[in-house]
């Protein structure tokens, strides 16, 4: 056990995203080489084996996201080629094969992020493209997955951004017991905004996570796990990793039942410049207790709260020495 599986050479260009499935026993990597690779965990050997590799797009594949396994083995990927493709694994003579079951291509510009909604909302998919629109699609028939209907669309900022002006990004709030919410990074506006559904099921911006000195490259909404507050992490071009804490704003009338624009008290509880280079991605673990961030400095940093509630860097994984250099 505890073997290291290396990705080296498995893709022909930069890998832009790695995503575990719900169970954590499958892994998808996507790359500029236009391919997606799926890795399966071999429990007996404790290593990850590449089970499929397929050409997914005609440009760099930027992100990929797994659907909840109750819908089958389903992936969605987005790309510079302006499309989102939904993939499903099928078996032919024991050979696994991923087939494109649906292509969503009504955007104008690079699709910059894609994420399946939390399971309790059904089989839904949120995408955000360079045109500055978040679109939410729902699979009409979970048994075929070929038909996706756009059920919502909203603008996140002031019009489209060119690719060189920065990317958009989004992350769903996975909590089952709140209204639907997501956090969206707004490209050239250099902020992240929280959007939530108002009583008329319209998505409205309700909070702004400010203080960024550049494009917000990535956002990640921590799994709530029944905490009294929400945590959102952002990765910023200015080299900072920030953690925002959203506490219920009881005075704001949230308790009175009426929808208010002000829902949370937003505080930035951590702001780290340790990367000292563009930070590209942040992601929480399943319990929302550990944050990972990766940047242009060639390091992955893991952040964890101490017992006193201060966030500290708990370890650094560096590229130069490979995974073996993992330091506690």
């Amino acid at each position: 056990m505890n073997q290291v599986t290396k990705f080296d050479g498995s893709h022909e260009d930069l890998i832009h995203d790695v995503a575990f499935n719900y169970y954590g026993n499958r892994l998808a990597t996507c790359s500029s080489d236009q391919k997606i690779k799926v890795w399966d965990y071999n429990e007996s050997d404790g290593i990850w084996e590449s089970s499929s590799a397929f050409k997914a797009h005609s440009c760099a594949v930027l992100k990929t996201s797994w659907a909840h396994p109750e819908y089958g083995q389903v992936l969605a990927s987005c790309s510079f080629d302006r499309s989102v493709i939904v993939w499903e694994e099928s078996y032919h003579d024991a050979a696994k094969k991923w087939t494109a079951v649906a292509t969503l291509r009504d955007g104008n510009g690079t699709v910059q992020d894609v994420e399946f909604a939390p399971n309790h909302l059904g089989l839904r998919l949120a995408i955000v493209a360079a045109d500055g629109l978040v679109k939410i699609y729902e699979a009409m028939d979970v048994t075929s997955l070929a038909h996706w209907t756009m059920i919502d669309s909203f603008a996140v900022g002031e019009g489209p951004s060119k690719d060189e002006e920065g990317n958009h990004c989004l992350s769903w709030c996975t909590s089952k017991f709140t209204t639907q919410m997501m956090v969206v990074g707004c490209a050239k506006d250099h902020v992240a905004k929280i959007f939530r559904q108002d009583p008329n099921n319209k998505w409205q911006a309700c909070e702004i996570l400010g203080g960024h000195g550049g494009v917000v490259h990535d956002v990640s909404w921590a799994p709530n796990m029944g905490r009294s507050y929400h945590l959102i992490a952002t990765a910023c071009k200015d080299g900072h990793v920030r953690i925002f804490k959203l506490t219920d704003d009881n005075q704001g009338g949230a308790m009175s039942g009426g929808w208010t624009r002000k829902l949370f008290i937003v505080t930035c509880i951590a702001d780290f410049a340790d990367h000292n280079a563009e930070v590209w991605r942040v992601e929480w673990n399943v319990t929302g207790t550990i944050l990972s961030s990766s940047g242009d400095d060639g390091k992955v940093r893991l952040w964890k709260a101490t017992y006193t509630g201060d966030w500290k860097c708990m370890s650094v994984v560096s590229a130069e020495d490979g995974p073996n250099a993992f330091q506690r």
Binding site: H16, L27, S294
Partner: peptide, 20 residues
């Protein structure tokens, strides 16, 4: 283009890519 990404699964494994 993003130069790297890290993800954690429920078994405490870390999958990552980084680039200097």
């Amino acid at each position: 283009l993003p130069s790297g990404k890290a993800a954690m699964n429920c078994y405490g494994q870390l999958a990552f890519t980084v680039s200097g």
